[in-house]
């Protein structure tokens, strides 16, 4: 497994320039024909935030004790959820969408994963910075611990990438399973404390949340940024270790099976 990771890294390093080129194509390519171009990357999140503030002014239900103002809580939690879900979405479609390119060129498949990850990080940071402004508006105070916030997202990224890599392979050959996993992800959002507080009393749901690693991974980053406190640090550390291990296993799986499934891809 360690040898595999080392090989993946060497492949990535040799093709690092390609990764950057692909990132450029993804980011700039979408706005090539537009006159205001990359400004869209800022305009869209600003609009989303405005819609959010307006909707919030219309009044919301009481979700339980969230510690920080509820709108700020939801805004932060949904961004964190999005951080996890979007990396899953983009990597899990990597082989199925770009398989045509992969059978024409012999560059390492991991380069595509690196590209998806970098594009994801860029696409996440811009609205995140805006959201932090909104949080200030809602009266959230940031402590020094908030500086660790970006680092605290790493396990969430590794978990999303890991699931994404496995589903990427399955998406070529086992379409039914992937449809179920995609739907499962939507369901998972409701089973994670994002729009309600983690302390919610709801019978079996409370029990599930207790064992849901995402509750800890998202909760820790959220509290670190917004409250400067540590949300279940032991559970977070355990989940971090688990996520890292899972990522390594998933990478090994992706490397071992990725090549074989490509030939089964039916080009459209």
């Amino acid at each position: 497994m360690i040898k595999d990771v080392a090989k993946a890294w060497t492949g990535l390093w040799n093709y690092r320039y390609l990764a950057w080129q692909l990132v450029r194509v993804s980011i700039v390519g979408g706005y090539k024909k537009s006159f205001i171009g990359l400004a869209w990357m800022f305009i869209l999140p600003i609009l989303a935030v405005l819609v959010w503030i307006v909707l919030n002014g219309a009044g919301v239900v009481d979700p339980g004790d969230t510690g920080i103002p509820y709108p700020a809580y939801v805004l932060l939690s949904t961004s964190l959820w999005g951080f996890f879900l979007e990396i899953y979405k983009s990597t899990s479609n990597a082989l199925a969408n770009e398989g045509k390119l992969l059978i024409m060129k012999d560059f390492p498949r991991e380069v595509l994963l690196a590209e998806k990850t970098l594009v994801h990080l860029i696409n996440f940071s811009i609205p995140m910075v805006l959201n932090i402004g909104v949080l200030l508006l809602f009266g959230v105070h940031f402590g020094w611990a908030a500086l660790l916030f970006p680092l605290s997202l790493l396990p969430l990224l590794l978990l999303g990438l890991g699931i994404g890599m496995i589903v990427a392979v399955l998406r070529v050959v086992a379409v039914d399973i992937c449809t179920m996993i995609d739907e499962g992800m939507k369901l998972l959002m409701f089973l994670t404390p994002i729009v309600y507080a983690p302390k919610i009393q709801a019978g079996w749901l409370s029990g599930f949340i207790q064992w849901n690693p995402l509750a800890y991974l998202i909760g820790f980053s959220r509290d670190l940024l917004a409250g400067g406190s540590f949300f279940h640090p032991k559970a977070y550390l355990a989940c971090t270790l688990g996520a890292a291990l899972f990522f390594l296993l998933a990478l090994t799986f992706f490397r071992a099976t990725g090549k074989r499934v490509l030939e089964r891809l039916v080009n459209t």
Binding site: V172, T257, R264
Partner: peptide, 17 residues
Amino acid sequence: DLKANMYYGIKDVMRQS
């Protein structure tokens, strides 16, 4: 055959993992 292709693919992936 498309379906058989998918089926063998799943089997191969399982064997490789």
